[in-house]
Computed example of a mutant assay.
Amino acid sequence: MNRVRLGAAILLILLVMSIGTAWFVHSETDMLLEKLDEIEEIAETQSLEAAAEPFAEFEAQWEKSQRILNLMVWRDKVLQIDITISHLDPMRAEDCDELKSEFAEARMWIERLGVGEMPLLRNIL
């Protein structure tokens, strides 16, 4: 009987950890997408110098999120987002025409990370 209880407790712990990880990844990706939307809106409507402070906040938030996400998801997913985000700052500083496409690519990778970590049937199979 003790083995059954121990087995049930281990399964319960694994279930709670899985749900907690999925929730955390989803909340982090939502927060990053909101900040990215804010930066993109500022870059389109105002000068790029006005986007410097929100962009610095976004990069700081990404650095914090990256450390924790590396423990929870495959490193290649986080690395791809990091590469795309590292391309944004030089393009913002130079007023590059490809900035809008880099915003879209960063959004795509962040969304893919959030959806890919949800416990959905298509992700499990």
Rank of each mutant, 00 (worst) to 15 (best):
R122Y: 11
I124Q: 03
L88D: 02
L69A: 03
W109V: 04
A8C: 15
R3M: 10
E105P: 05
I10M: 12
D37E: 07
V4C: 12
R67H: 15
L36V: 05
E44F: 15
E111I: 06
P90C: 12
D30K: 02
L36A: 03
L15F: 14
M31E: 09
A50L: 07
L69F: 05
E94L: 12
E59D: 14
W74G: 11
M1K: 13
V16Y: 04
E59F: 13
M108E: 07
M31Y: 13
L71H: 12
I42N: 04
S86Y: 15
I81K: 00
L11S: 09
R107E: 01
D97T: 11
L69N: 01
Q61D: 07
E59A: 10
L12Q: 11
V78K: 00
H26C: 11
I68W: 08
Q80E: 08
L11P: 05
K77H: 09
K64G: 15
V25S: 01
D89W: 15
H87L: 14
A43R: 04
M17V: 03
R122E: 10
R5D: 12
E94V: 14
F58D: 00
E111W: 06
I10H: 08
E38I: 07
M72F: 01
G7V: 14
L32R: 01
Q66Y: 08
L120C: 07
E49R: 11
E38H: 11
E38N: 07
P90G: 09
Q80Y: 07
E38W: 10
A22C: 01
F24W: 03
A8F: 13
A93I: 14
A22G: 02
E41R: 15
L120N: 06
K100I: 12
A8K: 09
E117H: 00
E111T: 04
L99W: 03
L12A: 12
R92Q: 10
R107L: 00
I81M: 03
E59N: 14
N70P: 11
I124P: 01
L12V: 14
C96G: 14
A106I: 02
M118T: 05
F24P: 00
V25F: 02
A50C: 10
P90E: 06
A104Q: 13
A93N: 13
I110P: 00
P119T: 02
P54W: 04
T84S: 09
E40A: 04
F103W: 01
E117D: 02
P90A: 10
K77A: 07
S18H: 01
R75T: 10
E57N: 10
P54S: 06
I68E: 06
K35C: 07
D97A: 12
C96F: 14
E57G: 09
S18Q: 04
K64Y: 15
L48H: 05
L36Y: 03
A51D: 03
A50R: 10
I39P: 02
A93V: 15
R67S: 15
D95N: 15
I85T: 03
W62G: 02
D76C: 05
V4S: 12
M72S: 02
L6T: 13
Q66G: 08
A52Q: 06
R5N: 13
L11E: 08
M72L: 06
A9S: 13
N70M: 13
L33E: 01
D37R: 03
N123M: 02
V4G: 09
P119C: 04
I81F: 03
A106T: 02
L6E: 15
L32T: 01
I13W: 06
E49A: 14
K100P: 09
D82A: 09
